[in-house]
């Protein structure tokens, strides 16, 4: 297996002093890639910006116009968490384009794992609004491009925050399965088990909320017991991972207790969900402790490449097993309710 990473682009202009979503994050992620010492097994996909047509597959044109104008007007706070600068519009388009470029490079061969080193992150960005540090939804833009080619896309989101933007964008799309593990309650306040998809995509959203303190064994069991059968039934042709690393126990943004060794296991699971080699691309989302981010990215990629994983021991014994057991029941109730409503509407 080879690793395909996007060519670095200058993201230094998207910075707000003191804000945790900062340029050194991509530096830490790229250092983790260098730590792998892959030599000729590391390929670089050329940097490019996403075109307006590619962005329009996900975002509203009016939002794109407003975001661009806002940035060129000098930027500022978009909400209590999210900022933009003069350079942010171009940097965000580069972030979105990086995912597209990595996937294009992967499609030319069948033996690659993709890793998209981007910021700002994307999974909170809605079709028409920035949110939660995110401006453009990078993984959704890549997913939409694959959909336009007739692919069926699994988006596995293991960031500690629920990817509300991605969920909303594909809520009614039967050709996307969105699976998220996340701490709850926590920002953005969505991602409950009863959110199972829209009428045209029932059972195409799978949320696994986890309590504060949950450990890696709980996340793994949730994915194996709950997600795996749904993924098998969906039969994806591509797997995109919203790979946030803020579920690490050292991260200041939340209270899950994962270690770098847990992320290695999650990477192995992600690969097991793919139909064949060369169909898993991971997108950097959160991760705000630079040391934990570097170690976790390193462990993730080493495991994905089936290499030697030098990582912290896996975590176990945390709370959440009971909560995960309830997810299946809540989903069944929600799905039956939606189906009954649909049947009633059809009969009337």
């Amino acid at each position: 297996m080879v690793l395909i990473v996007n060519e670095a682009y200058d993201d230094a202009g998207h910075e707000d002093p003191g804000h945790p979503e900062r340029p050194s994050r991509t530096g830490a992620a790229r250092a983790a890639v260098a730590d792998l010492h892959l030599g000729g097994d590391l390929l670089v996909a050329p940097s490019r910006t996403a075109s307006r047509a590619e962005l329009l597959l996900v975002h509203h044109g009016s939002y794109l116009d407003e975001l661009g104008a806002y940035c060129y007007g000098g930027g500022g706070d978009l909400d209590q968490d999210t900022y933009a600068t003069y350079d942010s519009w171009e940097i965000a388009k580069n972030a979105a384009g990086a995912g597209l470029s990595v996937i294009e490079a992967m499609q030319a061969r069948d033996d690659a794992v993709g890793f998209v080193v981007t910021r700002p992150p994307g999974h909170h960005a809605l079709a028409d609004r920035a949110m939660g540090f995110c401006l453009l939804n990078n993984v959704a833009i890549a997913g939409a491009a694959l959909l336009s080619q007739g692919e069926r896309v699994l988006i596995l989101d293991w960031d500690v925050h629920h990817g509300n933007g991605t969920q909303q964008i594909f809520w009614n799309d039967p050709n996307v399965l969105y699976v998220s593990t996340h701490q709850s309650p926590l920002f953005p306040g969505s991602g409950y088990a009863g959110e199972v998809g829209g009428w045209r995509a029932i059972n195409r959203t799978l949320n696994i909320p986890l309590p504060s303190g949950a450990t890696g064994d709980v996340v793994q069991r949730a994915l194996e017991d709950l997600a795996s059968p749904v993924i098998d039934d969906f039969a994806p042709t591509w797997v995109l991972v919203s790979a946030g690393f803020d579920a690490h126990r050292a991260d200041p943004m939340a209270e899950l207790q994962l270690t770098s060794g847990d992320f290695a296991e999650l990477a192995r699971l992600a690969l097991s969900f793919a139909p064949r080699p060369g169909r898993v691309a991971m997108f950097l989302e959160g991760g705000y402790d630079l040391g934990a981010l570097r170690a976790s990215v390193h462990a993730t990629l080493a495991a994905a490449l089936d290499g030697v994983v030098d990582a912290e021991p896996r975590s176990n014994g945390g709370p959440g097993v009971d909560q995960v057991a309830l997810v299946g029941r809540e989903r069944r109730v929600a799905i039956e309710s939606l189906l009954a409503t649909e049947a009633g509407e059809g009969a009337s």
């Binding site: 407003e66 806002y70 500022g76 706070d77 978009l78 909400d79 209590q80």
Partner: peptide
């Protein structure tokens, strides 16, 4: 709101 430029077309809650 509290944002430095909240109330601008884009950021308006």
């Amino acid at each position: 709101g509290l944002g430095r430029r909240d109330g601008y077309l884009l950021g308006s809650t």
